[in-house]
């Protein structure tokens, strides 16, 4: 899937992936898609909670080469 912005959160642990995602979304337009790559297993649940709370749409969460890839659409 295409995306508008790519965020590398590999090697970062809570709370930094969420904070960086917040900053990235802040610079984006409504409807644009953010891709995040993370390695912290805890980030999987964190991004689910983040989307639920903030209203940004969680499009997909997959695991590729031991990395977690998240796609979310800015509200």
């Amino acid at each position: 899937m295409n995306f508008d912005k790519d965020l590398d959160a590999r090697g970062l642990n809570c709370p930094l992936p969420i904070l960086r995602a917040k900053k990235a979304l802040n610079d984006m337009q409504s409807g644009q898609i953010l891709r995040i790559t993370a390695t912290d297993p805890g980030s999987v649940k964190d991004f689910q909670a983040f989307c639920k709370q903030t209203g940004n749409e969680l499009l997909s969460q997959t695991e590729e080469n031991k990395e977690f890839v998240v796609l979310m659409k800015r509200k």
């Binding site: 809570c14 709370p15 969420i18 904070l19 917040k22 805890g42 964190d46 909670a49 983040f50 639920k52 709370q53 903030t54």
Partner: peptide, 15 residues
């Protein structure tokens, strides 16, 4: 279960 995560969820996303 994570006490720091508890604060992070609350402060950073209102959860």
């Amino acid at each position: 279960f994570c006490t720091m995560g508890a604060v992070a969820d609350w402060v950073n996303m209102g959860d």
